[in-house]
């Protein structure tokens, strides 16, 4: 995992600024998303996912995480992003599951690629634009423009998973 140089700030500066947060950045195809690091628990390589019938389309199934049953959600389906089989930016081997704790429940979200961890100054976060294809606006906390990097889309995890 690389620390994003553009946005990294020395620890000293970080102490003086309270509105600075760390985000885990990952890809769903070409788009980059960020979730607050304190919501995440760990990142695991894909393990066997057991399908659960009669659930919503974006529920991939459940995994056995050291004896705990954890539901896994496919974010791209949750966002309604069309899966174009010929245009995958990342190989399946790069897929990861980020486990997050939301509303007291441990959940896994499957992503295409983990980019790294970045510091984000909250004052640089802009309200979400309306154009994001397919994604419901209330899933988003905002966007953060970065030099030489794609737009970082910050997710509201609770709403994304439960709304």
């Amino acid at each position: 995992m690389t620390l994003d140089k553009e946005n990294s700030i020395s620890m000293a500066a970080q102490d003086s600024k309270s509105d600075l947060n760390q985000y885990v950045v990952f890809n769903i195809d070409a788009e980059q998303y960020g979730i607050k690091i304190d919501k995440t628990r760990e990142i695991i390589k894909e393990t066997k996912i057991t399908k659960v019938p009669n659930t919503a389309e974006h529920v991939m199934g459940v995994i056995n995480l050291r004896g705990i049953i954890v539901p896994v959600i496919e974010l791209s389906r949750r966002f309604g992003i069309e899966d174009d089989i010929n245009e995958h930016l990342f190989s399946d081997a790069e897929q990861r599951i980020i486990t997050v704790e939301s509303e007291g429940q441990l959940l896994g979200i499957q992503v295409d690629h983990i980019e790294g961890i970045v510091w984000v100054e909250e004052e640089k976060v802009a309200p979400p634009p309306e154009l994001e294809k397919g994604i419901r606006e209330d899933y988003l906390r905002g966007v953060c423009a970065r030099a030489d990097n794609p737009l970082l889309i910050l997710l509201d995890l609770e709403k994304t998973l439960f709304a």
Binding site: V52, N54, T55, N64, I68, I69, P71, Q105, F162
Partner: peptide
């Protein structure tokens, strides 16, 4: 017997899950 948690609590015809011999999940 393990719970599927509240995210999947309402799943029809499934009441929970368990881990079987090979480490797999059985519903």
């Amino acid at each position: 017997i393990k719970s599927l948690g509240k995210y999947l609590q309402e799943t029809r015809y499934i009441s929970g899950a368990t881990i079987i011999g090979d480490g797999d999940v059985a519903l």
